[in-house]
Design a protein around this nucleic acid. Sequence first.
DNA 1: GTCTATATCCCGATAGAC
DNA 2: GTCTATCGGGATATAGAC
Lengths: 203, 203
Amino acid sequence: MPRSAKGGRYHHGDLRAALIGTAVELIGERGVRGFSLAEASRRLGVAVSAPYAHFDDRDDLLAAVAVRAFEIFTGALMPEMGKFAEPASRLAAMARGYVRFAAYNRPLFEVLYEAGLDKVRHPEIEAAEQQLNEAFLDTVRALADGDETRADDLATAVEATARGYAMLLLDDGPDPEPGAVEVAAERTSRAILALIEGRRLLG
Amino acid sequence: MPRSAKGGRYHHGDLRAALIGTAVELIGERGVRGFSLAEASRRLGVAVSAPYAHFDDRDDLLAAVAVRAFEIFTGALMPEMGKFAEPASRLAAMARGYVRFAAYNRPLFEVLYEAGLDKVRHPEIEAAEQQLNEAFLDTVRALADGDETRADDLATAVEATARGYAMLLLDDGPDPEPGAVEVAAERTSRAILALIEGRRLLG
DNA sequence: GTCTATATCCCGATAGAC
DNA sequence: GTCTATCGGGATATAGAC
């Protein structure tokens, strides 16, 4: 990418996109709360005031990261589900995908849950969440005998299980090895199947 | 509590303990990363340099909070377990206690997992964790037919489930209502029982 | 759209007086 | 053990030039 000499003007091709990318990098290194516009600017070699031409403020940039996170999240899980016809297998596959996503896209996963973004100010985020949620609920309903309350309880249980395994994996340290990720994903998958097996005890 | 007039010397009865308490307050309001020694000092009406007479640095204070967190955590879960003889009921009770602890002691729960403390510098933390862990593993083993691998898988599954439900509850917003906490705790408890019911699928 | 420069604020940590 | 004072650093955000 073109970079003018030190001190000269810097015309970035697409500073907006570059800022989002750098934000992801930085969040991976220091967490959401440790991220700052100032350091992102420094890394890109632009003035600290430059980001304000593209984003209202720090949170506005984080919201853009969150939207990208949901896109990647959805893009990773939907195909995974499509490989299985049985509802139980589909849920297990989703859970595996969930844990893998958390492990391999830690910064994005962190933004989804820890950014504390104002959903009133950033409604795009909820919209990005919608598609995946519908597919998830459809699959859960198939295991609940048409009982909406049972479906809700099972959905919560599946989500909690996946979330919990993801958190445990991320606790072990940043950037887990692929082997450890697969072990965790497989355990998660089996826990989902065990949960479904005993689901009559849920509600 | 005695407080000298503005500008005068301030002799606190136990600044060390007061700092820990104020840290918990502040973490509840702004999260672990948003906590600062400077603001804690301001709230207590002492100079920003005063804390350094009791703690090496910011992390040293957070470590003291973490130790207190484990003490309260253990103190809440052990009696809960003691009420039940059956291993499955004990694990379900632990999980209920786990979720309640997270909901009613959010700052402490946060410190346990998000403080990112150096365990080499603060070995007390691991010691505080030990007691509870042993009791937990003993109960899990009773459900694993003497198979240590099965026990390990089940322990992970139980921990992940409790952690996941706690995270979902905390996601809903700070300071959840007692009604919501009980619903979440009950759901967690049932999920543990369902998991145990289907545990042959775990490994 | 980007830069320079600046205002304003907060933080951690230390030195030296009392 | 606490205070006053201070150093050094980093952040957000804005104003005005180009």
